[in-house]
Computed example of a mutant assay.
Amino acid sequence: MNVRKIALAVLVLTVIGGTAAFADNVSQKLRVIVNKQELVDGGVLVDGKAYLAVRALADSVQAILSWDDAEKKVVITKPNVHMFTMQDSTTFGSVSKGRNKFNIFSQIDNLKVDITAFKVTITDPYDDTTWLDGRDTSDKDFPDSGKDNFWFKTKEVSYDFKYSGKYVIRFWMKPKGETAFQVVSEKIISAK
């Protein structure tokens, strides 16, 4: 009886080991690097073709990712979003530590997807994020559906740059039919 159990165990382990070795030969893990950052999910190489994690790729290039379930397709849209920061009429990219007042101007074009909201946030060097301004479809100055370009100026922001380091300003959009905001642009402010 023990001989049968041992033989069965050896057979099962041989099949499992052979399958794992075959799967490893058919597909290989693939490191994917975008703008000097390695994607966490990376990809796989199967029969000489690279397959990437779409969400990781879209996030790394700050694009909007939408899923069309009816047509079983993924749509990646990369709008142009240019942001600049101004104190009075002077642009800046660095500040002294402490409270500063400023506005963020954003120019959006090549928007090829309808959105239902957008927002601007700032994240300090310790990953604490603060909402600065934004709009949704209930606001009278929200861009019309189908509009592919618009400008946005935040209200005057009074923000305390408590720490030395890099602060990240992000412009987020929520595509129509989606529940989550997605980052479409970033700007760095250095505080000293």
Score class of each variant (00 low, 15 high):
residue 20 A to D: 00
residue 121 T to N: 09
residue 123 T to A: 00
residue 6 I to Y: 04
residue 133 D to E: 06
residue 134 G to A: 11
residue 157 V to I: 15
residue 111 L to D: 01
residue 164 S to H: 13
residue 128 D to M: 09
residue 151 W to E: 14
residue 14 T to N: 06
residue 111 L to T: 06
residue 46 V to E: 09
residue 116 T to H: 01
residue 30 L to M: 12
residue 185 S to A: 15
residue 89 S to T: 14
residue 62 Q to P: 03
residue 94 S to P: 00
residue 127 D to W: 05
residue 183 V to T: 14
residue 180 A to E: 08
residue 120 V to N: 04
residue 25 N to I: 14
residue 4 R to V: 02
residue 75 V to C: 11
residue 89 S to Y: 15
residue 129 T to V: 01
residue 151 W to P: 06
residue 26 V to C: 09
residue 154 T to N: 07
residue 75 V to N: 13
residue 112 K to Y: 13
residue 61 V to F: 10
residue 144 D to F: 08
residue 73 K to I: 15
residue 21 A to M: 07
residue 187 K to H: 13
residue 105 F to K: 14
residue 116 T to A: 13
residue 16 I to H: 02
residue 46 V to S: 08
residue 52 L to M: 13
residue 186 E to R: 15
residue 117 A to H: 10
residue 10 V to Q: 00
residue 33 I to A: 00
residue 10 V to W: 00
residue 52 L to F: 08
residue 156 E to R: 15
residue 180 A to P: 00
residue 3 V to Q: 12
residue 86 M to Y: 11
residue 155 K to G: 03
residue 108 I to Q: 00
residue 149 N to P: 06
residue 127 D to T: 13
residue 83 M to V: 07
residue 167 Y to C: 03
residue 144 D to L: 14
residue 33 I to G: 06
residue 70 A to Q: 12
residue 141 D to P: 03
residue 182 Q to E: 10
residue 173 M to I: 11
residue 116 T to Q: 09
residue 44 V to M: 07
residue 161 F to Q: 04
residue 27 S to N: 13
residue 81 V to K: 03
residue 45 L to G: 06
residue 150 F to W: 07
residue 169 I to K: 05
residue 67 W to N: 07
residue 10 V to S: 00
residue 58 A to S: 15
residue 79 P to Y: 00
residue 116 T to P: 04
residue 188 I to G: 00
residue 163 Y to V: 06
residue 53 A to F: 09
residue 64 I to V: 09
residue 146 G to T: 07
residue 40 V to S: 15
residue 175 P to H: 02
residue 163 Y to E: 08
residue 3 V to E: 08
residue 24 D to C: 08
residue 13 L to V: 05
residue 46 V to C: 12
residue 175 P to C: 02
residue 173 M to F: 04
residue 18 G to A: 11
residue 181 F to V: 00
residue 90 T to S: 07
residue 181 F to N: 07
residue 53 A to L: 11
residue 46 V to D: 05
residue 107 Q to R: 14
residue 33 I to S: 08
